[in-house]
Every structure is written in structure tokens, then in C-alpha cells.
Write a protein that binds this DNA or RNA. Structure first.
Lengths: 233, 233
DNA sequence: TCTACTGTTTGATCTGAATCAAGGAAGATC
DNA sequence: GATCTTCCTTGATTCAGATCAAACAGTAGA
């Protein structure tokens, strides 16, 4: 790592917990790496070798059954942390959904560093707690929501998380954005098939709730209505 | 708290990270409390006032939609930690499934103590990471598994988690145990209706995979077969 | 411009689990 | 020991979403 102080996610990644001198030490443990769309960094069931901060790009966290069924259990944005620290095996895969830049650490050296830097572990704990909240919210979706509710929830979630991406903390819900997922991946996040995803989107478009300028773009025309359809708590 | 050194979960709860003198300080912040079956300690959406260690008993963590649909997003056993530290609101409810004994802390005093005791935060981080792994495993179940696979997975999970309960670390998979959940609650964990749960159990019994001596008891007759049916990764 | 390809939409049909509807069993209460 | 009450099981029917099957729209190459 050349110079963490110039890093675009310097203030929002967990590294924000560190003082400049500590950051420099951590920086020497890491290396910046580009990964291209579709590349898998971590394989489900393999030894947990690496962890990383996401500098740019979007990745998916997924688990699967031996017959090929796959569930996406997390979507990772810039400034987020990936990998399974403090554990021998990774129970899930991590794959780039777009070209991405990462700041990679060997798990063992990261673990050792973190144990000696409580402020960093504290940030990591906070993030893990937030990730757990999100996972549980999604369990409610997967266990109890209808197809329409699932799609509406996903679109709202994307409009929020894509809006807070980057280095600033400003929160602006986007009303037009490019989905980082194709239809199949949307299905794999929502526990639905590609056909059901497509039909539900077509219906929301026909009802004037959203617009679909092209395959990846979504515009939210009536956010209030989308919120009602999402069956938020 | 009278005397943490005598606590039955002393060595398996997160308190195990503390030295005797630190433990005494934490002990003075907590109080032991009994809660009875059905009682809710934390309400979804309310301020996160308390956190606790479970000394005995079993509790559920649940989230719901305004129209009453409920998803159980976690089942909590002795020595586990409950509540949402480091957050203003609790996104989920916590309710006792059996009579239980807890060691309760005000969230603010626990948060402050934890921030000054990195070893405790480290334990909490490890537990939160494990809880996240479990939540994601369950997302796979809710998103992709069939009713039979879900029931088989639940029974195996229960046989393991009930077997490791208590103060020792010994891991023995139980082949006969009392379910801490009624049929409705099994449905709420699995994203199924009570009727489907009942039918699936009847079928497993008819096939000789399990026995059902009474409403709550389950005996596993053919664990291998149950494992095959569970569609484990 | 034609062809191939990849991702998406739309239609027809099927099916696993939900819903609706009785019954039955095991405690609890009187 | 009769009567509730609660929880569970079983059967009949329905339905949301899966599956099967084409067709369509961009995009990339040749």
C-alpha cells in the first residue's frame, strides 16, 4: 500500500478508527488489488486466507447447495469490509459484480493487527452488528414477504445504499440508478426466479411506480407507493 | 450480581474473556433476573435499553411486519448474548420461549464497560461473527430449500445446539431432545405454515427417519438419512 | 448487413406449499 | 370424570410462484 492517507475510503472504511501512525503500519500489511467483474476472491468452504476493504466496485457474498442452488446473502459496497476474520474457514464465497479495487490483507496478519488495536476491532464490531441487522431484515423478507414486496424492498434498499456510497457520509436516496445486479442475481438475492423478477418489474413499470430506461437503469417514479408495496415494518 | 465466579455460564459466556477483578466490576453493573415463558424483554423498534447474558432457558429473536406476519430470526441458548449493543434502537424483539434466567445490563453501562475492555469486545465480535454466519446459513435455507430440507436442517441444528448447551464445551449431538419450539414457532423459524411443519414431521416419522414420542420430544432414528434430506452444502 | 450471442420478457402450464376446514389428543379446570 | 382449552394432525382445495417454452432486444463480431 503506497499511501493510505490518500485513500478514497479513508474516512468511511474501518481504517477511520486508526491514528496516522497506526494506519501506516496497517498500510504496510495490505496491498491494493484490482479484480475484474465475475472474479471470485474467496471460495465457500475454503480456508479463510484473506480479508479486505473495498475501495471501489460492488461484490456479492453467496452460499450454495451442492446441486447448484445459490443464495446471495450479502451485497458489498465501497468502504465495506469483506472476508471472515477470526475463523479458519470461510462459510461463503465473495465474487465481484463489477470491476473492483480492494485493499487486501492476509487474514492472519489482519487478525493479529486487529487484536492489538481495539479501536479497529470496535469499528469492525459495529460493522458486523450492522451486517447482522441487515441479514435478519433479509430473513424476514425471505421467510415472509411476497414477490412484489421483495422487489419493492430491494429497489428501495439499492436506492439508499448506492446513495451513501463513497467517501462522504451524506445520505441521499437516489431516484435513478444503475442496478449492480442482473435479473438472475436479483432472483438469487430475493429467493425468486428470474422470470418472477422480470414479471414483477414489468408490472411496477406498467403501474407507473418505476421506470426502466434500459436493462440496468431504474428510476423511482413514486417512492411513497413503492414504500407501501415493500411492507416495511 | 452476587458472585460471577459461581455463575454456571462463567466459562462459556463472553465474560470468560475477563480477569477476576474485571469480572467483579462488570458483575456490579449487572443484575440477575428471571423471566417467564412468553415474556418479551426487548420490543422491535424500541430504544435499545438493555443487553444480557443468558444463564438458563431459551429465547427467540424475531422481526415482524405491521400486518402481523412474524419471522423468528434467531434462537438464543444459555451462555449466548442478547440485545443490540452500540445502537440506539433494537431492530428486533426478544422473547422467552421457556422460563429463563438472565444477567442484565443497561446498554449504556455495558457499552462503556466494553469499550474499555478490548478482550470482552473481542469475544463479542467473535460471537457476532458466528451469529452472522448462522443468519446467512438460514438465508440460504429460507431462500432456496424445500419444506422437507428445512425441517431436516432444523432438527439437526437443534440436536447440535441443545447438545452443546451449558457450561462445558463438549459437543455431543443429541439423538433425543425436547424441542424448545412449538409447531407455530417452528413454522416462524422456517418460513412455513404450521400445517406444513406438521405434515413434514409426520412424513419423516412415517419414513422411520425420526420418532415423535410426544408433542415436544424428537428422537433421531437415522441421522445419516436426515443429513441427506437436509441438503447441507 | 448478417449472424450469433447474451440477457430479458412474455405466455402457458404445473406444483409445492398455503389456505380453508374439520377432527383428534392431551392437559388443565371444575 | 366431564368439559374446556390449547395444540396438533389430517384432508380438500386454491394459488403464487416455479417451470417449461418461445420470442425479443441489444451488442459484438465477422
Amino acid at each position: 500500500m503506497k499511501d493510505c492517507s490518500q485513500c478514497v475510503v479513508r474516512n468511511s472504511a474501518i481504517c477511520a478508527a486508526l491514528m496516522p501512525d497506526e494506519l501506516e503500519v496497517l498500510g504496510r500489511l495490505g496491498r491494493k488489488q484490482r479484480v475484474s467483474k465475475g472474479q471470485t476472491l474467496v471460495w465457500e468452504g475454503d480456508d479463510s486466507i484473506i480479508v479486505a476493504n473495498v475501495i471501489s466496485g460492488i461484490l456479492k457474498v453467496s452460499m450454495s447447495i451442492s446441486d447448484g442452488r445459490e443464495q446471495i446473502v450479502g451485497v458489498v459496497f465501497p468502504a465495506d469490509f469483506i472476508g471472515r476474520p477470526f475463523g479458519r474457514k470461510s462459510p461463503y464465497s465473495v465474487t465481484a459484480l463489477s470491476d473492483a479495487e480492494l485493499c487486501i490483507f492476509s487474514r492472519s496478519s489482519f487478525d493479529a493487527f486487529a487484536r492489538n488495536h481495539p479501536a479497529l476491532e470496535h469499528k469492525l464490531l459495529q460493522r458486523t452488528l450492522e451486517e447482522l441487522d441487515r441479514a435478519r431484515e433479509w430473513m424476514l423478507l425471505l421467510g415472509k414477504k411476497t414477490a412484489t414486496e421483495r422487489i419493492a424492498t430491494l429497489l428501495l434498499e439499492m436506492s439508499i445504499r448506492l446513495g451513501e456510497t463513497g467517501c462522504s457520509v451524506e445520505q441521499n436516496e437516489l431516484n435513478e440508478f444503475a442496478l449492480p445486479l442482473d435479473r438472475q442475481q436479483m432472483g438469487d438475492v430475493l429467493g425468486l426466479t428470474i422470470e418472477t423478477v422480470s414479471r414483477q418489474l414489468s408490472r411496477l413499470k406498467a403501474d407507473g411506480v418505476i421506470g426502466l430506461p434500459d436493462r440496468r437503469m431504474v428510476s423511482i417514479q413514486d417512492r411513497r407507493r413503492l414504500q407501501d408495496l415493500s411492507a416495511a415494518a
